[in-house]
Amino acid sequence: GSKKEKILRMTLYISDIHLWDKVDAVYTEFFGEHKPARTIVPTNELHFGFKIEIDAIAYI
């Protein structure tokens, strides 16, 4: 029931720090001028072999 413009904070877990540039490019394209607070956490492996996991806080 919310919108991407109402996202306040994002935590992105990435399985490899070398993915940083790709993740940043997609993030920037998706959000445009809206800039929610962001933390990117490099990890080792993620569950099920995923390369990225995202936790978002938004309001409605």
Rank of each mutant, 00 (worst) to 15 (best):
G1D: 04
G1F: 01
G1T: 01
G1L: 03
G1W: 00
K3M: 11
K3W: 06
K3R: 12
K4Y: 00
K4A: 06
K4H: 03
E5H: 03
E5M: 02
E5D: 09
E5A: 02
K6M: 00
K6C: 00
I7M: 03
I7E: 04
L8R: 05
L8I: 06
R9M: 10
R9K: 14
M10V: 07
M10N: 09
M10D: 04
M10S: 07
T11A: 01
T11H: 01
T11P: 02
T11N: 01
L12S: 00
Y13A: 00
Y13C: 00
Y13N: 00
Y13W: 05
I14L: 11
I14R: 02
S15D: 08
S15W: 04
S15Q: 09
S15T: 05
D16S: 11
D16N: 13
H18Y: 10
H18K: 14
H18A: 09
H18M: 14
L19T: 02
L19S: 06
L19K: 06
W20S: 13
D21W: 13
K22N: 10
K22W: 08
V23G: 03
V23Q: 09
V23C: 14
D24R: 12
D24Q: 10
D24A: 10
D24T: 13
A25W: 06
A25Y: 07
A25K: 15
A25V: 08
A25D: 15
A25N: 12
V26W: 03
V26H: 07
Y27I: 14
Y27H: 14
Y27Q: 11
Y27K: 11
E29Q: 15
E29K: 14
F30C: 13
F30G: 04
F30M: 15
F31H: 02
G32I: 11
G32D: 11
G32S: 10
G32C: 12
G32M: 08
E33M: 04
H34A: 06
H34E: 09
H34G: 02
H34C: 09
H34W: 07
H34N: 08
H34S: 07
K35N: 05
K35S: 04
K35M: 02
P36F: 03
P36L: 09
P36M: 06
P36A: 07
R38N: 03
T39L: 06
T39F: 00
I40E: 00
V41L: 04
V41T: 04
V41G: 03
V41W: 02
P42I: 08
P42N: 08
P42F: 03
T43M: 14
N44K: 15
E45Q: 09
E45A: 08
E45M: 09
E45W: 04
H47W: 03
H47P: 11
H47Q: 08
F48P: 06
F48V: 10
F48Q: 14
G49P: 02
F50A: 15
K51V: 10
K51S: 12
K51R: 10
K51P: 05
I52N: 04
I52P: 02
I52H: 05
I52E: 05
E53R: 08
E53P: 05
E53S: 13
I54W: 06
I54L: 15
I54P: 00
I54V: 13
D55F: 07
D55Q: 08
D55N: 12
D55T: 12
A56T: 13
A56R: 03
I57G: 01
I57A: 07
I57D: 09
A58W: 06
A58Y: 07
Y59E: 09
I60E: 13
I60D: 10
